[in-house]
């Protein structure tokens, strides 16, 4: 498992990675990227599944159920809106840029 200092390293490296990813983004993609990162933290669904999986009492199950419900909403909703947005981005039909649309 990930503990103590190892986790600190992960926190640091992940922090720099996020910073790097966004620092060279055209404004045109800010909304899709915000939406995309909104989808990525939908990974919380996995944690919610474990929280509900280890629930023992009824109250824990109820709260865990809500967690999975919300987490699934985040993941699925985030995906659907991001995909819909990005589907629309296309370059103008000038020969030289055709390679972009098929890539």
């Amino acid at each position: 498992m990930i503990e103590g200092l190892a986790a600190l390293y992960i926190f640091m490296l992940a922090g720099f990675t996020g910073y790097e990813i966004i620092s060279r983004v055209p404004v045109i993609l800010h909304t899709p990227l915000m939406s995309g990162s909104n989808f990525v933290h939908g990974i919380v669904l996995v944690g919610a599944m474990i929280a509900l999986g280890i629930a023992e009492s009824t109250i824990e199950q109820i709260i865990g159920f809500i967690a999975v419900l919300l987490g699934a909403g985040n993941a699925v909703g985030g995906y659907v809106v991001t995909e819909r947005m990005l589907e629309m981005f296309k370059p103008s039909d000038k020969g030289s840029e055709q390679k972009g649309s098929e890539g």
């Binding site: 926190f11 992940a14 990675t17 996020g18 910073y19």
Partner: peptide
């Protein structure tokens, strides 16, 4: 951890 922190830092910069 990785996905969350990447989004946390990218989102802060944004």
């Amino acid at each position: 951890i990785i996905a969350g922190i990447v989004v946390g830092s990218a989102g802060s910069l944004l």
